[in-house]
Structure formats: structure tokens, C-alpha cells
């Protein structure tokens, strides 16, 4: 089936098998390997991307379901060499160790702040409940998101 979607600002038209999962389409057909596949069972959140502005787990969505949609992956966040504020806050707050969960964590965090620009620490933890990290113990991830929110709201990071 022929599908068309805008990924990170670029329109792509591709022939896909209906059973192709969006995560595999992004990685294998479009070469966007920043979207990691962890558990492949919609638990870990490593494959989190944005579809029409909302976070989704791309291992649990068919590519054909995203036909006509606007998709953003981790590769689409930075502006050239300038990191997205959330990426920078993860870097500055040591919000990652091995980095495997990070693309999904950052995409989930950006979506979270769009829905709730000024979350409490508890709201950040609940908002990231769909993303698992096996290294950091979450503390610095939560700090990163809170720092980014504070920065967006004009406060000190």
C-alpha cells in the first residue's frame, strides 16, 4: 500500500506492507535509527515518537495508520547544530547514561510539557510512566524535565 507522511518536515511516499510497524518503517525504510526498539511490546517507550504532535509508541502502530500524518522523531528535534531545549537539559542534568531509552524519554518529555507546561515532580514521574530506564534510576531524568519546564517558564533552571 502506498503511504505518504511528513517526517521531520520532509514528505515521504513509500510502498509498505500493511503489517509494517511504524518503528520499523522509520528505521529500515527511512534510515531514522534514532528511534530505538526496546521491548517491542509497548512497555518500554524507547520507540516513542510524535504523530500529529502527540507521543505514541511506534512499535504499536502500523505505518499505514500514520498515512497522511505529521511525524517527528528524535532526529527532528534539534535545529541544525542547536539542540532542542529538552535535549540540552538532558545533557546538562546528566539525564542519561547508556542512552538507549533517551530518544523515547526526550520525545515523551517534550509531549508532556506541551500538555502540562508547569508540572510538579510527581506529574513528571507520572507523565513518564510509559518509559523505562535501566541506568539512571530516573532521578536525573526528572530533574532534566523540570529544568526544561522552568527554563520555558522563564525561571532559573
Amino acid at each position: 500500500m502506498k503511504i505518504t507522511m511528513t517526517v521531520n518536515g520532509v514528505q515521504h511516499s513509500d510502498e509498505v506492507e500493511p503489517r509494517t510497524l511504524l518503528a520499523y518503517h522509520l528505521r529500515d525504510a527511512l534510515g531514522l535509527t534514532g528511534t530505538n526498539i526496546g521491548c517491542d511490546t509497548s512497555s518500554c517507550g524507547a520507540c516513542t515518537i510524535h504523530v500529529d504532535g502527540e507521543s505514541v509508541k511506534s512499535c504499536t502502530m502500523l505505518a499505514v495508520q500514520a498515512d497522511g500524518s505529521t511525524v517527528t522523531t528524535i532526529e527532528g528535534l534539534a535545529n541544525g547544530d542547536t539542540l532542542h531545549p529538552m535535549q540540552r537539559c538532558f545533557q546538562e542534568n546528566h539525564g542519561l547514561q547508556c542512552g538507549y531509552c533517551t530518544p523515547g524519554m526526550v520525545m515523551a518529555a517534550v509531549s508532556l510539557l506541551e500538555e502540562n507546561p508547569d508540572p510538579t515532580e510527581r506529574e513528571v514521574r507520572l507523565g513518564l510512566e510509559g518509559n523505562l530506564c535501566r541506568c539512571t534510576g530516573y532521578h536525573n531524568i526528572v530533574q532534566s524535565v523540570l529544568a526544561c519546564a522552568a527554563e520555558n517558564n522563564g525561571g532559573a533552571a
Partner: peptide, 8 residues
């Protein structure tokens, strides 16, 4: 589920 699940 979680926020990503609730979006879909």
C-alpha cells in the same frame, strides 16, 4: 496504560 497508550 501510560500517556502514549492514552493518546491512541
Amino acid at each position: 496504560g501510560d500517556p502514549q497508550v492514552r493518546h491512541r
